[in-house]
């Protein structure tokens, strides 16, 4: 079966986020970018499904500027077979991303679509569910286990206070949570091989989607900074302060 994986180019998770002085957004100039960590888990899951003989082909898609091809190449180095780049320099919000992915899904007809549960920049946690709704597919969000069984997939989900397993008809959408797997690193030979794998580029207009944003960001501010507190001399003083000053125990 064919598996489609969507990946997003975001700020590297180790980089300190700095708000621009004019409060229009976060400063991304000359900042290290990488594949969103939850998307790495999505790619890894698809590769494991292929290694088990469940998936026959892995198509990776990314929406974004020219440079997003780096993240597609990373996914190809990890084991995806070919890439689709929806190239745009515009800001693409969740609903519009879901519409673009719907168009790709209609063309590719995958049995399973795997996405990260959210990206670590906008933290929306929307695109997978929106794609599922637009295509009439079932969804297994926040997945910690994915087991394909004939025409169904069982997804164990990380929910508040425990785990929940659902059975979904295929085709279906899965969004990944942290426990699903631990992504591998790409080997140098695979990185070299990935350069020769096919990568097709399309525009939102080719897919017939208007990506004009519905939400406008009025301002972006740094959170209120925490002040460093006091150093205590020993554990007894610490417990005394927690009990009598902070009153939290």
């Amino acid at each position: 079966m064919k598996v489609l994986v969507a990946v997003k180019r975001v700020i590297d998770y180790n980089v300190k986020v700095r708000v621009k002085p004019d409060n229009t957004g976060v400063d991304l100039a000359n900042v290290k970018m990488a594949m969103n960590p939850f998307c790495e888990i999505a790619v890894e899951e698809a590769v494991r499904l292929k290694e088990k003989g469940v998936a026959s082909e892995i198509v990776v898609v990314s929406i974004g500027p020219k440079a997003a091809q780096e993240q597609i190449r990373t996914a190809l180095a990890l084991g995806a077979d070919r890439g689709i780049h929806v190239e745009t320099d515009e800001e693409v919000q969740s609903l519009e991303a879901a519409k673009l992915l719907k168009s790709v899904v209609e063309k590719e007809e995958p049995k399973l679509v795997i996405l990260g549960k959210q990206s670590i920049d906008s933290d929306n946690n929307q695109t997978g569910q929106m794609l599922a709704a637009l295509t009439g597919m079932a969804q297994g969000t926040f997945a910690s286990e994915v087991v394909v069984d004939g025409e169904k997939v069982n997804v164990t989900r990380e929910v508040d206070g425990g785990l929940m397993t659902v059975s979904l008809n295929l085709p279906a959408v899965v969004t990944t949570d942290l426990r699903l797997n631990e992504p591998r690193y790409a080997s140098l030979p695979n990185i070299m091989k990935a350069k020769k794998k096919p990568l097709e580029s399309v525009s939102p207009a080719d897919l017939g989607v208007d990506v004009a944003p519905r939400l406008s960001t009025l301002k972006v501010e740094a959170p209120a900074a925490r002040q460093a507190g006091v150093k205590v001399a020993d554990v007894a003083e610490l417990v005394d302060k927690l009990k009598n000053e902070a009153k939290v125990i």
């Binding site: 986020v17 708000v19 976060v26 972006v220 740094a222």
Partner: peptide, 9 residues
Amino acid sequence: IYAGNAIAT
């Protein structure tokens, strides 16, 4: 946004 490293309106 950015896990609380920035606050957007």
